[in-house]
Structures are given as structure tokens and as C-alpha cells.
Amino acid sequence: MQTSSWRRFSALYSKELRELRPEIVIVVAAAVLICVTMFVKSGTSERDLLVLPIVLLMGLAGFLPFVATFKLLGREWSSNTIYLIMSLPASGELILGAKLAALISQYLLGTLVVIASAVVWLYPHLPELVRSLNSMTGIDMQLAQFIPGIAIAYLLSLTWLFYLISASFLSQLISKLFTRFNGAITLIAFVIILMLGSWLMEISRSFINTSSSINIVGTDVVSGLQQAILFMGINSAIYFIAAGLIMMISILVYNYRIEL
């Protein structure tokens, strides 16, 4: 008798999150430390210097989930836990899906905590920032007008991550079909998958006939912003479809080709 798919997925997802706990704790702890420092140094010029660690932490929060893809899947083989995973009544959809969900959760948690600390840092500077933007563009813009653009840029970063995770899973699984040179095969397969993906996406973009040149100058800033949002939205959709296809191939390889 088999338990429900949801229960099996939850068990796998919780296990993956536990594996990622050290990286999540590092990012969250660093963000909390930055916020505490901001409050301690409020009203001093030293507070402004905290922008650098925030930017670095944002990079780290975005980059760590990608690095962790190699840890989550590769470690199953190096620690022999793949014997347990593959003997479980769980298909590739559940196993890779749980890993993907945990990595996306790590990204969301890390980046949102860092964004929150960036907002805390930015808050006293907001009027000054809006003034400089308005003087640069020559029109009276409200901060709220930038929010859809920021949201869609975040969505685009999320689909990039999905794309990179899928490519990483597929390249690692391909390398497991060989008995030797796994590291080199993973690297080569990863580069080839990215190149093929980029090529297919270029074809899609030209098919959709979207302009990649956006002109955000002078009074045309509103339409420029709309154009940028449209461009990022289409790119998000293309990356999402490409990532989904690569993930499906990864699942097929796991279900039908992987052996121990």
C-alpha cells in the first residue's frame, strides 16, 4: 500500500530543505546582522556604507541556490543515499520536483530577506532618490510606477534560476549514465544545454519579434518602462517554457535511464 503523493512529496521536500539549512541560515543571519547594524548606526554616515554588504549578500542569496543544485543531486551519489532514494516508491517527478521546490524556496527566502533589509536601508533615502530620478527623466514619476517593473524583474530572475537548476539536473543525470569522468561530463553537458537553450530562445524571441533595444530617456520614460516590462515578461515566459522542457527531459532520464 502506497501513501499519498502529497505525503511523499512533503517528506522529500522537508529532507531537501534540511540539507539546505546551513546556506539559508548564513544568508538570513547576515541580513539580520546588517539590519541590526543599520539601527545601531542610524543617523551616521557609516549607515550608508552598508549598501555594499547588502549588494554582496543579494548576489550570494541569488547564487547559492544554483551552487546547491550540484550539492543536492550529486551528494546522493557520493554518500550512497541514492540507494535509498531510488528504492523508494517515488518517481522522478517527485524526487526532482522536491529538490527544485527546495531550491526555489531557498532563493525566495534568501532574496526576500535581503530585499527587506535593502528596503530598510533605502527608506531614509527615498525622497532624494525619487527627486533624482525625476530630474533625470524630466517628468514627475511616482515610486509606485516602478513597482510592476521591479516585480517582473524578480519574476525573470526566478525563471532564470529555474532554467539553471533544470540544466544542472539534466547535466548531472547525463553524467551518471557514464562510469567515468563524471565531473567533466557534467560540465560539458551543462555548457551544451545552456548553449542549445540560448539558441532555441533566440529563435523564439525572433519569432515573437520582440525588440531587445529599449530606450528609457527623456519624456518617453513611461512607454520605455512599459516596453521593458513587456520584454521581461516575454523573456520570463520563454525561460519558463525552456526550463520546463529541460526538467521534463531530466525526469525522463531519471525514470528510464538511471541505474546503480
Partner: peptide
């Protein structure tokens, strides 16, 4: 697979888990 309990020769359990956590993890599948 749901009908099979398999004990491999090698150590295949997660070293960071306690026995209770490993049991809870396995029980979620069967």
C-alpha cells in the same frame, strides 16, 4: 517498489538524520 523492503550492503541512510527522523522519512512512503 511499494512491496519491497531493501537492505543494501552499503550505508545508504542520511548521516545527519537521527534514527527517529530516518524512520519518519521512510514511513511517509509506505
Amino acid at each position: 517498489k511499494v512491496d519491497i523492503a531493501y537492505l543494501p550492503e552499503i550505508d545508504h541512510l542520511y548521516p545527519w538524520m537521527t534514527i527517529r527522523q530516518a524512520a519518519s522519512f521512510v514511513s511517509d512512503f509506505y
